[in-house]
């Protein structure tokens, strides 16, 4: 039995008693939003250094070992590397460092590539911090409250949050089921790694069809179960979870706002 999909989403949360863990999910989401936006405003070394320090401090505060960050990063690492190489090869600035007949590498390329790579790395680290230190449910909740002003504009915020929460609930179940179906088909001699692309795509059909049929059945059952439990939309609904904005949250946002201000100053005056 292969279990192909272990700990895809839920396995990410690392429980700890830390400053970052205790923060209100809304504060975390806002803070990271500010960080990501302003990280790309100025490319001054001082700004990047500040961003690195900020990330470092957050990392230390969260008290989550680095290996947890690496676990989900293989894919991202490839992207960062590709971006680096792209900039390395495509920039024609500064001194010539290496001159091969088919390619020339300039010092500007190295600098540009490193800057981008560093920014992406900081961004990914911060984003991982959010998912590693916040339970998915709290994240959903935080997003729902933050989107609330949009409800007045007709955005179905409650439904979106419910969808997210149902997705969180069922993604592991669906992955488990996919594993099971793949194993069952392989036991019957199906082969997913041989033949032309077309053959391999065709081999996926016996997986997708049962999966879809099961999912529709599931959706129908779930709708009935929700109705039986009195689900009636957001009208008159109370919440099991309550978010609490504390002083630390304000402080964290304050720090991020100062960072934002500095980036803007460097952008304007250099």
């Amino acid at each position: 039995m292969i279990t192909i999909f272990d700990n895809v989403i839920i396995g990410q949360y690392v429980p700890r008693e830390s400053f970052i863990h205790r923060m209100d999910p809304r504060a975390k989401i806002i803070a990271i939003f500010i960080f990501i936006v302003f990280l790309f405003i100025s490319r001054h070394p001082v700004v990047l250094m500040l961003a690195a320090i900020l990330t470092g401090v957050t990392f230390l505060l969260a008290n989550i070992p680095f290996r947890y960050y690496i676990k989900g990063m293989h894919f991202i690492a490839i992207i960062i590397l590709l971006t680096f190489l792209l900039h390395l090869f495509m920039t024609n600035d500064g001194r010539v460092l290496l001159d091969l007949s088919w390619i020339t590498i300039y010092s500007g390329g190295v600098i540009e590539g490193s800057l981008i790579a560093l920014r992406l790395f900081l961004l990914v680290l911060m984003a991982s911090l959010l998912t590693l230190s916040t339970m998915p449910m709290d994240l959903t909740d935080g997003l729902e409250r933050l989107m609330k002003p949009l409800a007045a504009m007709g955005v179905p915020t409650h439904e979106l949050a419910l969808m997210m929460s149902i997705a969180l609930r069922f993604i592991p179940t669906l992955l488990e089921e996919t594993s099971k179906i793949i194993n069952a088909q392989m036991a019957r001699g199906a082969n997913f790694s041989k033949g032309s692309l077309w053959t391999r795509l065709k081999a996926l059909i016996p997986i997708l069809v049962p999966l879809f049929i099961q999912s529709f059945k599931r959706a129908e059952d779930l709708a009935t179960a929700m109705e039986a439990r009195g689900y009636n939309g957001s009208k008159g609904r109370t919440k099991f979870r309550r978010l609490q904005w504390k002083r630390n949250d304000t402080i964290a946002i304050g720090v991020l706002l100062i960072f934002a201000l500095i980036t803007v100053i460097f952008r304007v005056y250099t």
Partner: peptide
């Protein structure tokens, strides 16, 4: 309570799921 255990729990954790009907009914916190 329905037949299929996998198709009737709505929420991602046990306590959230137990609370689901209460939330719908508007029971205070």
């Amino acid at each position: 309570v329905f037949q299929n255990p996998d198709n009737q729990l709505v929420a991602p954790t046990v306590e959230d799921d137990v609370a689901f009907g209460l939330e719908s009914a508007g029971i205070p916190y």
